[in-house]
Simulated assay, not measured.
Amino acid sequence: MTSLPRMGRRAAVVGVLGVLAATMGTGVATARPAGTTSTIKIIAGVPQTIKESSGIAFQCPANYVMIGRAHSGDENGGTTYYCARILIDGYQVTVNAEPWSDAQKESNSSFTAPEDEVIIGRLHSGDENGNTQYRTAYLTYQGRELSLQNQHTVGPYRESSSSSTAGAGELLVGRSHSGDENGNTYYQYATLVG
């Protein structure tokens, strides 16, 4: 199956929705009256801990996104991932996975998800000289792509005893690290807009 570029996907979704609306004789989604807002709930799942230096690719379950990460010890220590699902007005947001990122050396790594995308997976192998990759996703609700705003960085955290989770309404969109397990790690979060 051929992968459409991001703008091509948007146009395809809009085109399909237009055809559906025309054939059904009704609108696909009901617009909210001006001045009202959607209720967004981010519901944390069960944290999962792995030994990531063994090269295990971690990915949040289907329709879950990453909201945090913790690591203890050196490269053989445990890494815990925190994932959550998102509901808008009681309905599940769809998480549309993108391909894995290019690999980069962990000891000098910096990754930020593309605009309006969130992190859903991470793959690391070995120590600080090993490679790290990320998997991102864009989010859709009732056929439209959602956006993120107010991106900010938190840290530094010493990697060997680090733990960071998103604030209210936020999702994980980036991470950077320098050095070995005693080096600094920073996380980037952004707020989901309904």
Rank of each mutant, 00 (worst) to 15 (best):
Ser125Glu: 11
Ser125Val: 11
Ser125Met: 12
Gly126Asn: 02
Gly126Arg: 05
Gly126His: 07
Asp127Glu: 05
Asp127Gly: 13
Asp127Val: 00
Glu128His: 09
Glu128Gln: 12
Glu128Tyr: 13
Asn129Lys: 09
Asn129Trp: 11
Gly130Pro: 10
Gly130Gln: 07
Thr132Val: 15
Thr132Tyr: 07
Thr132Arg: 00
Gln133Met: 13
Tyr134Phe: 15
Tyr134Gln: 07
Tyr134Arg: 10
Arg135Gln: 10
Arg135Lys: 12
Arg135Tyr: 00
Arg135His: 07
Thr136Gly: 02
Thr136Ala: 01
Ala137Thr: 04
Ala137Gln: 04
Ala137Asn: 00
Tyr138Leu: 00
Leu139Val: 00
Leu139Thr: 03
Leu139Ala: 09
Thr140Ile: 02
Thr140Tyr: 06
Thr140Leu: 05
Tyr141Pro: 09
Tyr141Leu: 08
Gln142Ser: 13
Gly143Leu: 03
Gly143Ala: 08
Arg144Ala: 14
Arg144Thr: 05
Arg144Ser: 14
Glu145Gly: 11
Glu145His: 10
Ser147Pro: 07
Ser147Gly: 02
Leu148His: 06
Leu148Met: 04
Leu148Pro: 04
Gln149Val: 15
Gln149Met: 13
Gln149Lys: 15
Gln149Tyr: 13
Gln151Tyr: 03
Gln151Trp: 03
Gln151Phe: 01
Gln151Pro: 12
His152Trp: 06
Thr153Asp: 09
Thr153Leu: 11
Val154Arg: 06
Val154Lys: 08
Val154Cys: 01
Pro156Phe: 05
Pro156His: 07
Tyr157Lys: 09
Tyr157Gly: 06
Tyr157Cys: 12
Tyr157Asn: 06
Glu159Phe: 07
Glu159Ala: 01
Ser160Asn: 14
Ser160Arg: 15
Ser161Trp: 05
Ser163Cys: 14
Ser163Lys: 12
Ser163Thr: 09
Ser163Phe: 12
Ser164Ala: 11
Ser164Trp: 03
Thr165Val: 09
Thr165Met: 08
Thr165Lys: 07
Thr165Asn: 06
Thr165Ala: 04
Ala166Gln: 00
Ala166Phe: 01
Ala166Val: 00
Gly167Arg: 01
Gly167Leu: 00
Gly167Thr: 02
Ala168Gly: 10
Ala168Asp: 12
Gly169Gln: 00
Gly169Leu: 03
Glu170Ser: 12
Glu170Pro: 13
Leu171His: 00
Leu171Glu: 02
Leu171Ser: 08
Leu172Ser: 08
Leu172Trp: 02
Val173Lys: 09
Gly174His: 09
Arg175Ile: 04
Arg175Phe: 00
Ser176Phe: 04
Ser176His: 04
His177Arg: 13
His177Leu: 03
His177Thr: 03
His177Ser: 12
His177Asp: 10
His177Trp: 08
Ser178Asn: 11
Ser178His: 08
Ser178Cys: 01
